[in-house]
Simulated scan of single mutants.
Amino acid sequence: MEDRTKRIVASGVALSVVGYVIWPMEGVLGQNMWLPLVPESLGDYQITLLVLAVTGVLGFGITIASSIRLSELAIGGVLAYVFWMVVLSLAFSEMLLAYLAYGLVLVGVLLGALIGTVIARQPKVKSLILSS
């Protein structure tokens, strides 16, 4: 039980960092830190897909490279999301964009982790992972 709790806490901390790196709050590094890297022709839809893809790769990597299970990542991620949304709601008045952005980050990480979990459960892949 202790190991599971540690993995949940580690998940919450890791996803807090991922959320901040993907979408930092305005005034520290700037909300649009990553947007100069994206061509101006992309709209909100494409940027949303880009965020989902990047965070999905991170979630995939977390589940493949560590002992953190999908359920532990989900619990830690939801706890981190709720905690930070409460903190940010107390600090800032208008938070709709943060709710959506950080929710999108959480969804992307969990989708990537789900794909990683499904792939890792395949017999051939499982033997490759265990042998390395």
Rank of each mutant, 00 (worst) to 15 (best):
M1L: 14
M1G: 09
M1E: 01
E2D: 08
D3W: 07
T5N: 00
T5K: 06
K6S: 06
R7L: 08
I8V: 15
S11G: 10
S11N: 05
S11V: 09
S16D: 01
V17E: 04
V18F: 13
I22G: 02
I22R: 01
M25H: 15
E26A: 05
G27W: 10
L29C: 05
G30L: 02
Q31S: 15
N32I: 01
W34I: 04
L35A: 12
P36F: 04
P36C: 12
L37V: 06
L37K: 08
L37N: 05
E40W: 06
E40P: 02
E40H: 03
G43L: 10
G43E: 02
D44K: 08
Y45P: 01
Y45V: 15
Y45G: 07
L49V: 14
L52N: 05
A53F: 13
T55I: 11
G56A: 12
L58H: 04
L58Y: 05
G61L: 13
G61V: 12
I62V: 15
I62S: 06
T63V: 15
I64A: 09
A65M: 06
A65D: 02
S67R: 15
I68E: 04
L70H: 04
L70R: 07
S71M: 11
I75L: 09
G77V: 10
G77Q: 13
V78Q: 08
L79M: 14
L79C: 07
Y81R: 05
F83A: 14
V87N: 07
L88R: 13
A91I: 12
F92T: 05
E94D: 01
E94N: 02
A98V: 12
Y99E: 00
Y99S: 02
L100A: 05
L100I: 15
L100V: 14
A101Q: 12
L104W: 12
V105C: 04
L106G: 04
L106F: 07
G112Q: 10
I115L: 13
I115C: 06
I115S: 08
G116D: 04
V118P: 00
A120D: 00
A120P: 00
Q122L: 14
Q122K: 08
K124A: 14
K126H: 03
S127C: 03
S127F: 13
L128S: 09
L128I: 09
S132F: 05
